[in-house]
Design a protein around this nucleic acid. Structure first.
Lengths: 139, 139
DNA sequence: TTCCTTGCAAATACTTTGCAGACTG
DNA sequence: CAGTCTGCAAAGTATTTGCAAGGAA
């Protein structure tokens, strides 16, 4: 992914830096979407010297370049970020007990969109769908 | 609705006040869910003297009593509140241009829930579904 | 009169911005 | 070397909490 990142950065007059590389690496190594502060903590554990502000700025850049997507899960009050590059459209389910987040691969909403467009006269560009419940350990 | 409110307040050792009555009235008079600060502005326009903090506290109480539901629409970074009492389960669509929020009456997700429970081993308790697009005026 | 409720000030949590020095290409 | 990037400090936004005065029953 680094190759494409360099390409994307150059194309927009930006540079590949130690911190951008590190943020992308940590995101790639994670199963579930991370918040800025979680990302910051992981980087600290890996002895990567970085400021929280830089984490935010880096995530903004990666989002602009289309490498990550930004999610807002309900009842969280913060953003989360996950690698988007090469991943299919998907949704999430979050455990109300422990907060664990799991991907859902199915998306039943494509058919629904045209129905909603008729009902509301909107042009639908995006949707968010999220489930909440209890994971096996928390039941 | 005031009758039921008094009942609910009394049952939990609370009182009916000028501000609680006013907050409920404004919410009832609105088509779409309001944020705390929007509610505050409306109250000011109606010459109701109230503090923003009290708006938040009142909304919390109304939520606890089940009179309003709290929503988090995406890309907003704030909560919104709408009357829940006597309303059916529904979702929303929000215009990416002007921010207008419209109710959707259909909910296609009941059937999906059991499928997701099988897929993830979670017990599903809630879901959020939201669409974003452009309303007729903003297209 | 009791004790719940309110307003004001301040704190909190997450995120963004300003600026000068550090680093990439 | 030019111009981008970073860290630090500070500001911004939404929301919550502490406390003493005000108000409902």
């Amino acid at each position: 992914m680094i190759g494409k990142l360099i390409e994307g950065l150059r194309a927009t007059g930006r540079r590949l830096t130690r911190t951008r590389r590190a943020v992308l690496r940590v995101l790639e190594g994670n199963q579930y979407p991370l918040s800025a502060s979680e990302l910051y903590e992981r980087l600290q554990k890996e002895k990567v010297s970085i400021d929280l502000v830089t984490v935010y700025r880096t995530l903004t850049v990666l989002k602009e370049l289309g490498f990550v997507s930004q999610l807002e899960l309900h009842h969280e009050g913060q953003f989360r970020y996950e690698i988007r590059q090469g991943r299919k459209h998907h949704h999430h389910i979050r455990c109300q007990g422990c907060g664990r987040i799991v991907d859902l691969l199915l998306c039943p909403l494509k058919k629904l969109t045209s129905l909603i467009e008729k009902e509301t006269q909107f042009v639908v560009n995006e949707h968010t769908l999220e489930f909440g419940g209890l994971c096996p350990k928390c039941q």
